[in-house]
Design a protein around this nucleic acid. Sequence first.
RNA 1: GCCGCUGUAGCUCAGAGGUAGAGCAGCUGUUUCGUAAACAGCAGGUCGUGGGUUCAAUUCCCACCGGCGGCUCCA
Length: 587
Amino acid sequence: MSEAGEVPFDQLPPEERLFRQRHSAAHVLAEAVLEMFPETKYAIGPPVENGFYYDFDLPRPLTPDDLVTLEARMRVSVERDLAITGEQIPKASAREIFRDQPYKLELIEGIEDETVGHFRHGDFQDLCRGGHTESTGQLGAFMLDRVAGAYWRGDEKNPMLQRVYGLLFATQEELDAFLVMRVEAEKRDHRRLGRELDLFHIDPIAPGSPFWHPKGTVLYNGLVEYIRELYEEYGYQEVITPQIFGVDLWKTSGHYQNFSEDMFLFHSGDEELGVKPMNCPGHCHYFASGHHSYRELPMRLAEFSRLHRNERSGVLHGLTRVRSFAQDDAHIYCTPEQFESEVFTLFGLIERIYSELSLGQPEIRLGTRPAKFAGNPEDWVEMERLLGDAVTNAGKTFTVSPGEGAFYGPKLEFHFKDAIGRSWQLGTVQVDMAMPAAFGLTYVGEDGAEHRPMMLHRAILGSLERFLGVYTEHTGGHFPLWLAPVQAVLIPIADRHIEYAQSVRGRLRERGLRVEVDESGERMGAKIRKAQLQRVPYMLVIGDREQEAGAAAVRDRTGDDLGAMPVFQIIDRMVDERDNRSVQAMV
RNA sequence: GCCGCUGUAGCUCAGAGGUAGAGCAGCUGUUUCGUAAACAGCAGGUCGUGGGUUCAAUUCCCACCGGCGGCUCCA
């Protein structure tokens, strides 16, 4: 049977064609690898975003030169335009065909049906559920991209295979456009912009622990200030709890049992201590330290303290995966009656913040009950439903990540992509069905009796470090005025204008604007270029004419020359833009 | 942690078995200039760290550390 039998390949919808091209390209890649290394054990090779990959167990590591060779062999297969055919065959036949292929045999055993899919082109054959082009001549524009390691079946207990990634698009133009886009995206990489804009650096003396430079610290504090303002409006109270606790606290919370490998634990005298990796146990301990009336609930405790997690070395990544960070963290304690409305209000706050920061739509995931969990399954189902409702009631959609909840409860995750398309979790909302009981939390209800409060964990920006990493890439370093480390640079055309520029700087600073005068001996063009590369929102050029008129010539970072404006008008404009947290002037 | 790659000045990079160079940035001087780079000079590196091979290692080999791309993990 020709798989595209019902509908000819060229009449399929474009996405389906692309999917099949990528899938078939994976087969052609495997064919080339088997040709080059006949002893190859091949595993799986699906289509993915932007292309395809295939996993192999090979006698030696592949080199970039090998990829060139393999790609050339693939093109031979394309040139020959071999028919790709498939059929269902009995498992017994498949076992015979793949008798020397342990990974295929394992896959066959995992298939429930009596028959399995078997596809071939030329001399190549594969175990495959199908979804292919009619022939190897229909692959579109492709290239092999890189080779990486990947565990068989994604389990680190299994052997590591070599994964060859390929890119594939319908046309050469689209492939070229993708490559250009990728190069452009690298220019927005927060690790690069962090250096160019003098925001932060990370030194081998403290892996995964950023040094925030003065300009990065302005961003950092600006975000905290923004969130603090919202906390007032939304009824949060900020606390500061200890950095280091005796391990009893972590044993009570369950983190010692679940995460001690990733905690910084140490001994001091006879005591074992741990640096806090999260704030929740501290907040629970605070709650437990006093008596609370139902009148105090909901109690929303916020904290920006520094947290440390001893992340495994291979996972560190710029600002997006670090060992030292702070969250816009909060824990909400409330009565069961208040719980649903708390979740819904919280969802509204999250939406508001992402919208005000112009972040675009997050991908929302609902993490459900994992293998190791606290509480009873019925409560999990109920809480999973509640979280899902909060999303759908707001007119949003989510996907379910089965088993991805925290050990103490289900969670919503808000994911955003970085410059090159990697997805990072920023915000999260987590129901906690374990800690209130573990810490023996109670409040006195209207009835005079003691009750157990409900508990929510939530962070909206997530970690400030990760947020700033993603946000730097999102904006390309063009931060909105209210966050921009330097909001305007005054550019005197000649030295005789410096004094006037300094007086203008004074007037702007009086209004709390972050302004500098470029007093260097450079020409105006060089000063403008420098300010432009630093993404300074406004360049205020001052020469004889402006000095005469008590004005400055305003240029914004889009390159627009807004002409000369009186200084008071510039101030009004900037203060207005700042106080509205406007993103209008972002590029 | 695992697989692969990688590490030369603050940054981007060149270089070679005989102890290192460019551009930008920095500093000094000259220039005083109208919307993305004025000119000149100076200074700056035990070539990631530790071993080994060698008459000689920054260059070759090994280990470790960091970084990059994935995988796994992410309270």
